[in-house]
Nucleic acid binder design. Structure first.
Lengths: 140, 140
DNA sequence: AGAAACAGGACTAAAAAGGTCTTGACAGAA
DNA sequence: TTCTGTCAAGACCTTTTTAGTCCTGTTTCT
């Protein structure tokens, strides 16, 4: 059957998250604690340095990595790998888990008060977050 | 901070799934078991009839609803609401849960054999599916 | 001061999602 | 049979999101 609507993959992480994970993994495993410049990371994870720089800005402002400027500048993990969980990482690059809008933005749901679905979605979101929090960078 | 990269919402279901859920809910609660034409459903859930028709084609080929053509044609649920779970619905409109590509497509992961992450992603996917399967159309 | 690194914003390109249009197949009623 | 109203299917267009570049500035070390 052909409907004209495309089905792809549900809940798939996007490319910037993919790169973020690879970059963090590189920092965690190959260069424990050291300051590494973006060019090296980009080369290691096979990404464009300019793009990866943007991604690391997100990670930096989320507090997952710490940047230093200047001639020997670069990035390093702000915390040991086992203290950085997957929820934080994904949230830094993609925003919070929401599944259904009305869970996050109450006003977006025109059935707020009567809506049984509301509670369900909230639970789904909670469970996903919980699961993601149990996985740390070290596990990857 | 401004990076030029946008963060929105993680794991958010898209509009066609939203409409699918509303449509199914309408069939389940307002018109139990009856054949209802797409125009009525569209009106009830405030969606374009043409677009909703496409969405219901997906649901139909997934076996969740049954269509009948002709002058008194339309759609009805193939099974009672408590036998239709959320995973089936989301999968019908958005495709399978995958989170990370390499879970679904082994070849896409260049680290297939050594990759510890591989196992992790598989578990995440499994847990999400499990959770979604426990929620049925009736709960919504 | 100068070189080498990140910061930040504007901008462009590519891909995905959302949505329309047209034609055909089917089923029932006159 | 033929007409009418429904879904089926595919091609097509538009809008939104994601991916990625470019340029200019700021910081820090030598």
């Amino acid at each position: 059957m052909e409907t004209g609507l495309k089905k792809s993959r549900m809940f798939k992480i996007n490319r910037k998250t993919e790169y973020a994970l690879r970059g963090l993994r590189y920092l965690a495993s190959s260069r424990k604690g050291e300051v590494v410049m973006i060019r090296e990371i980009a080369q290691a994870v096979d990404a464009s340095p300019v793009f990866l720089a943007k991604i690391f800005q997100l990670l930096s402002s989320a507090g997952l990595v710490t940047s230093s400027r200047g001639v020997i500048g670069g990035f390093r993990l702000s915390r040991p790998p086992e203290k950085i969980n997957l929820r934080e990482i994904l949230e830094a690059t993609e925003g919070p888990v929401s599944v259904n809008v009305c869970v996050v933005d109450e006003d977006a749901c025109d059935l707020t008060n009567t809506c049984a679905a509301h509670k369900i979605w909230r639970n789904v979101r909670y469970s996903i977050n919980k699961m993601l929090e149990q996985i740390t960078l070290k596990d990857l």
